[in-house]
Amino acid sequence: MGNMKLTLKIWRQAGPDAKGAMVDYPVTDISEDMSFLEMLDVLNDKLVREGKEPIAFDHDCREGICGSCSLFIDGRPHGPSRHITTCQLHMRKFKDGDVIHVEPWRAGSFPVIKDLVVDRGAFDRIQAAGGFVSVNTMGNLVDANAQPIAKQDSDKAFDAAACIGCGACVAACPNSSAMLFVAAKVSQYALLPQGRPEAKSRALNMVEQMDKEGFGNCSNIGACEMECPKDISLENIARLNREYLGAEWTKE
């Protein structure tokens, strides 16, 4: 067992329509080898034993790839370290005696379901509006190597495709804009020949859905890029700006 003592200030909210508030929780015996979520496990274990409601939070793979975890820790999405998700954050980043605020992602388009759990269904709906290549499952497609793709383009497409859909970009953005998420998806396909045939409709439809969901507007502040656990570049947003402009200009 470790010996760190911390004070957590955690957002508690009983349900979507309930009023929430920050509640203080002192925790003791925290080891620096624990992950942040394991520290919350310890707290929840204690709460259950005391007959209290444990804190609800989203998490699943706990290795930084599923995109489930989503906490605004100490004033920043996924906490103080760059390029990692909350589940990869370890307690050695904190000091004995620290006071740590923990809040859910805050955006009108990500309504709180309970405590620290929010509804990110808007991302799925944006994806369903155009985040795909319209190719059915086929047993006799052309060979995968029939069309070479420049390594540079393929690598850039991968960089964009690394997005885990966690929503940290929205959480970080003072405008609650979802542009980095949308731009990453649009870019991945725009950079690959397979995605070009639908590039125009994809950009238009995904942006339309993004706007419908009520996200804010991108004003190039750049907080999203700084907080993105997968280091998705603002270059993708510029690419979306180009793609969309071209699509609007030439649509029939």
Binding site: K9, W11, G20, M22, F72, D74, G75, R76, P80, H101, E103, R106, A107, G108, S109, A172, P174, N175, S176, S177, G214, F215, G216, N217, S219, N220, I221, G222, A223, M226, E227
Partner: peptide
């Protein structure tokens, strides 16, 4: 833009360190 962006976050953070990830003037246009 300002109006829509305000509306996009009806409940603001209790504690946020915006300076850790962006410039104040970019946020204050």
């Amino acid at each position: 833009l300002w109006k829509q962006n305000r509306a996009a976050r009806p409940q603001d953070y209790v504690f946020a360190k915006h300076n850790a990830n962006s410039k104040w003037y970019s946020r204050s246009m």
